[in-house]
Amino acid sequence: MDEMLFCFTHDREIDWMLPGVPPTGRYVEVPLVAVVTMRGDKLYNEHIYWDQASVLVQIGLLDPAGLPVSGAEQSRKLLDKTLPSNELMANWPTSEGKPIA
């Protein structure tokens, strides 16, 4: 398993991330998580996960107003652990000690 920051300028169609979306020219930063399984010395499978909503916000195809979504802010948090967490959850400061369900 690996967590990484994937950065690119959307200057061409990217089939695996933005299929059918024409280039916007916008810069994108998005954390990716890769889960890789090896069997012996061979690659068995690979699963890559990212926040598609964040990518769509950054290229201008999704308006984040009123939605629990962020843009490049989550990339900055990946690189700087001192930045605040849970900013999308307004009630987070008062949730400590409350039951989960």
Rank of each mutant, 00 (worst) to 15 (best):
G66N: 03
V69D: 04
E3I: 04
R26T: 10
F6L: 09
Q74P: 01
P68E: 02
Q52F: 05
S75D: 06
V69S: 05
F6R: 08
A53V: 11
P93K: 01
W50S: 11
C7Q: 11
D11M: 00
C7G: 01
S95I: 00
P93L: 00
V35R: 07
L61S: 04
K98A: 15
E13A: 10
C7A: 12
C7W: 01
D11I: 01
V28N: 04
K81C: 08
L83C: 06
M1I: 12
P93H: 02
V30F: 13
V33G: 06
P22E: 11
L32N: 06
I14W: 07
Y44L: 10
G97T: 01
L79P: 10
L43E: 08
A101K: 11
F6I: 03
D15I: 02
A65T: 14
T9A: 13
G60K: 10
A101D: 14
L43Q: 12
E29C: 01
L78I: 02
P68Q: 04
V21I: 15
I14V: 10
E13D: 05
Y49M: 15
G25Q: 13
N45Y: 05
T24V: 10
E46V: 14
P64V: 13
R26H: 12
D11C: 01
R26G: 11
A101H: 12
R76V: 00
L79M: 12
A34M: 10
M17P: 00
P68L: 03
G20Y: 05
E96N: 06
G66S: 02
G97V: 00
L83V: 00
G71F: 00
D51V: 09
S70G: 09
M1D: 15
V30M: 10
H10M: 03
T82A: 03
G66L: 00
V69C: 02
I48Q: 08
I14P: 00
D11R: 04
V35N: 07
V21C: 13
A101V: 14
Q58R: 13
A65W: 04
D2L: 08
P31F: 06
W92K: 06
K77W: 01
R39L: 15
A53W: 06
M89Y: 15
Y44P: 05
I14C: 02
N86Q: 09
E73K: 02
Q58N: 15
K42Q: 13
W92T: 01
L56K: 05
E3A: 05
V35L: 07
V55W: 12
